[in-house]
Amino acid sequence: DEEIEKWIETLLKRNISLRVNGKDLEIGSEEFKEWVEKFIKEV
């Protein structure tokens, strides 16, 4: 979905790490990609 890709790009540009389930996810890491894929499937 384009919306999500733009959102991810924005996050990448800002180099933010997300806190997911109490863990810091490094943007661009494998864990982050897995989380994004799960997130996309749920939406």
Rank of each mutant, 00 (worst) to 15 (best):
D1N: 11
D1F: 13
E2S: 13
E2F: 14
E2D: 12
E2L: 12
E2R: 13
E3M: 10
E3N: 08
E3T: 11
E3Q: 10
I4C: 15
I4H: 04
I4K: 04
I4F: 10
E5H: 12
E5R: 14
K6S: 10
K6R: 11
K6V: 04
W7L: 06
W7E: 01
W7V: 02
I8M: 06
I8D: 00
E9A: 10
E9K: 11
T10S: 11
L11Y: 05
L11R: 00
L12P: 00
L12N: 03
L12E: 01
K13G: 08
K13R: 13
K13S: 11
K13L: 13
K13V: 08
K13M: 12
R14P: 03
R14K: 07
N15C: 15
N15D: 03
N15F: 15
N15K: 14
I16A: 06
I16H: 02
I16W: 01
I16Y: 01
I16G: 10
S17I: 11
S17M: 08
S17Q: 10
S17K: 12
L18P: 02
L18N: 00
R19M: 05
R19F: 04
R19V: 06
R19K: 08
V20D: 01
V20C: 15
V20T: 04
V20R: 05
N21K: 08
N21M: 08
N21H: 04
G22S: 02
G22N: 05
G22R: 02
G22P: 02
K23E: 04
D24K: 13
L25S: 03
L25V: 08
L25M: 08
E26Y: 09
E26F: 11
I27F: 11
I27E: 02
G28V: 04
G28A: 07
G28F: 11
S29H: 03
S29V: 06
S29N: 03
S29L: 12
S29C: 09
S29D: 03
E30Y: 10
E30A: 13
E30C: 09
E31S: 06
E31Y: 10
E31N: 06
E31K: 12
E31F: 07
F32D: 00
F32K: 00
F32Q: 00
K33L: 12
K33S: 06
K33P: 01
K33H: 10
K33A: 07
K33T: 05
E34Y: 13
E34K: 14
W35L: 06
W35Y: 05
V36H: 01
V36F: 10
V36E: 00
V36R: 04
E37H: 13
E37L: 15
K38D: 04
F39W: 12
F39M: 08
F39K: 05
F39N: 02
F39D: 00
F39Y: 09
F39P: 00
F39Q: 03
I40K: 07
I40D: 00
K41A: 06
K41Q: 08
E42W: 15
E42L: 14
E42A: 13
E42S: 12
V43M: 13
V43Q: 08
